[in-house]
Design a protein around this nucleic acid. Structure first.
Lengths: 195, 195
DNA sequence: GAACTTCTTGACCACACGGTCAAGCGCTCG
DNA sequence: CGAGCGCTTGACCGTGTGGTCAAGAAGTTC
């Protein structure tokens, strides 16, 4: 199913990915049929199967590309900030900012996590994010800025706070990012430094 | 669709709920057909539709009853503990204990959250849990045990930590509850009391 | 403009799904 | 015993799905 694609072809593929992401987010993966996707794009069904071998492959690509985007954003935000605790703060803010701009992915991630075909992909993505955070937390412990506890557990806790606050305040209630981010940062930094 | 059920009937209904919960958790809601459920139970399809008007109603019942169970457990654990911070700690431990014993519900909750027909139910359930936590946090603030910040945000953060640690250490890695619970409690209490 | 590749069409297929129903089983109670 | 009701059966139905494919349009290359 590897195909040579012209410039035009690559754009079509991207168009399908973007459009499907919107529909999946609105109605869910299963209830959105391939027919729905191509119809609302005004093209024939064959177009879809020219670019993707299955509906499953499409979702996998959505998952993969969105994760890459998010990760790039985090790393740009952190850049070469020397203080590991500030790096974590900047990472939190960048993640929430990205989710704010790409709200639609939240529902898709949630579905993917519940499906045994996609859960492994998502799990691996999250492991990468956790590993990043662990790295900064270890630095923080060495410098005496973070409580000396299992760094992985601390990283998991931070991710949990970020996800929950993002879901409630950004995804469900549509509140401004900064407010939610401030709250997440404040709680997490207290949790990291320990009482 | 309200029916009179004998004792035997009530047991059948419970049997269907329990069995479906296992299958939904293993394979997911959509990929598990009504035929699968009744087949693996060795009964005809009519049995299912005698007790439930639709597959949707079944999931709604699973969601509802499991939430009730979890909530009862939390309240039993808290009982009449006078210290609000300790109440929160006990609530966290009770929740994680319950999830440990009912691992299967995790995947189901995740799917339900991603489906627009069930998300509202789940959201309401979570709101109840948050409201409980908010209550104790407010007490804690009054008594000067908890940092004076928006109690709802703190409650959300606590829930986020608990969910994430539960998912990773209990659901995915099958580690002992106490370890994960200790970590959650430690992080949350630091976050609540503030640095 | 012929030859060739990339892309598009939409009718079509096999199949699995949620849900129905006429028929019948078996327990209980008078 | 037999009437009545709770419960069970499983063939059946309509619908909608993911996916196929023969045919041809559009674009590119020599």
């Amino acid at each position: 199913m590897r195909r040579r694609l012209t410039q035009r072809g690559k754009e079509r593929r991207r168009q399908l990915v973007d459009h499907a992401a919107v529909l999946f987010a609105e109605r869910g993966y299963h209830p959105t049929s391939v027919a729905d996707i191509v119809e609302s794009l005004g093209v024939g069904k064959g177009v879809f199967y020219w670019y993707f071998s299955s509906k499953e492959e499409l979702l996998a690509e959505i998952l993969k590309s969105s994760h890459q985007e998010l990760r790039r954003r985090q790393q740009q935000a952190i850049a070469d900030e020397p203080n590991p605790v500030v790096r974590i703060e900047l990472g939190i803010r960048a993640s929430m900012q990205w989710f704010f701009e790409h709200r639609r992915y939240f529902t898709i991630f949630q579905f993917a996590a519940s499906d045994e075909r996609f859960a492994p992909v998502l799990r691996r993505n999250q492991e990468v994010a956790i590993a990043d955070a662990v790295h900064h937390i270890k630095d923080g412990i060495v410098e005496g800025l973070v409580a000396d506890q299992d760094p992985e557990v601390l990283a998991q806790a931070v991710v949990g706070v970020v996800e929950q606050l993002t879901q409630t305040y950004i995804f469900e209630r549509n509140e401004p990012v900064d407010q939610a981010a401030d709250a997440a940062v404040s709680f997490c930094l207290s949790g990291l430094t320990g009482t």
